[in-house]
Design a protein around this nucleic acid. Structure first.
Lengths: 196, 196
DNA sequence: CCTACCGATCGGTAGG
DNA sequence: CCTACCGATCGGTAGG
């Protein structure tokens, strides 16, 4: 059974993602949950509280990349497989409704200092991990020696984020097109960086 | 001399970009202009009117890429120069304060149907143009024959947009870093696609 | 361009 | 979890 507190969080996420924080009222959230506006205050101290609690509520979703750190750095795995593995995580995120809504909300409210910090650290962490991965591949002589690992990581990630934006924000592509474009990018990119 | 109407548009753009449409009140806009809230209605029929008039007011800024269409397609120009030329347009946009604010506002309010349409058509048009450019290069035997022009266009653009996002939205990079990364991307990308 | 004002709605509280 | 209510602020209007 889903608790009222959880219902409030779910409906808030939905509304904040679609209409923005200031575009959503407490009464709207309450109506979506099926209670009166004042009843929300039995579960949260205010609107800001709901917003910030959303990040704790959905925190487990944010840790995915750490789980795969060791996979990244396993020296013996096929590099192309690791790249595919990483891309699949990014894509599968897009099939998780809550994750999609959280991302949409964060992009909308990106001027909020808490949101900005989270977006920044998420981006930074991912780039750092992939940079290390490429640096290792270079030491092993598997990718071209003239590549800067950090630059390579950014170039790799740029298309993943771009295709995701097309799907998520601009709604220019279907989910199938997102998958296909990402797949193509990985093949193209790997061909360009691998030592032949 | 700048008119009150223009002052209202400028201050609205500023506030909408920073705090969002719903996060900005008519009285806030008026205060920034230096008049009372009710006086705005001598220039605009309402808040929505200001928002939509912003696009007409800033329309000249949106036409840049059409001006350069012929430059793109001039068969004899050095392709690398054309790519650089395009990238410079993208970068120079980021030095125009109004352009930056407009983009921030549009990304914020991307769920607004008018905004969504504009973002989509802008993206589509750019991709179409660059696709034609790459198709032409391919016919001329200047880039690899196995490349799909549309895919190549998306891959080219993805990093430009990514580095811009880092600068604009995430504020991870300085303007200098934006320029440098974009420059590097073009060289790297061109080396990967050109027929040797 | 202002003062004065409208009804509606906002986030939030009291008290049960 | 509700009813009833708070002061503040919202977008907008009337009238000068």
């Amino acid at each position: 059974m889903i608790s009222t507190r959880e219902k409030i969080l779910n409906e808030s996420l939905d509304l904040f993602a679609a209409k923005g924080y200031h575009g959503t009222s407490m009464r709207e959230i309450a109506k979506a949950v099926g209670i009166k506006g004042s009843s929300i205050y039995n579960h949260f101290s205010g609107k800001e509280d709901i917003f910030s609690e959303l990040f704790n509520y959905l925190a487990p979703l944010n840790l995915e990349s750490e789980k795969f750190q060791e996979k990244f750095m396993a020296a013996d795995t096929d590099p192309l497989k690791v790249l595919n593995y990483f891309a699949n995580i990014v894509i599968e995120e897009m099939q998780d409704n809550n994750k999609v809504k959280l991302l949409k909300m964060m992009l909308r409210e990106n001027n909020n200092p808490v949101v900005k910090k989270r977006l920044q650290s998420r981006m930074k962490n991912n780039i750092e991990r992939i940079t290390k991965f490429f640096a290792q591949l270079q030491q092993q002589g598997k990718i071209k020696s003239n590549l800067e690992p950090a630059f390579t990581a950014n170039e790799f990630v740029s298309a993943l984020i771009y295709y995701r934006m097309r799907y998520l924000l601009f709604e220019l592509d279907s989910f199938e097109e997102l998958k296909e474009a990402t797949q193509k990018h990985i093949c193209f990119f790997w061909e360009n960086i691998r030592e032949k």
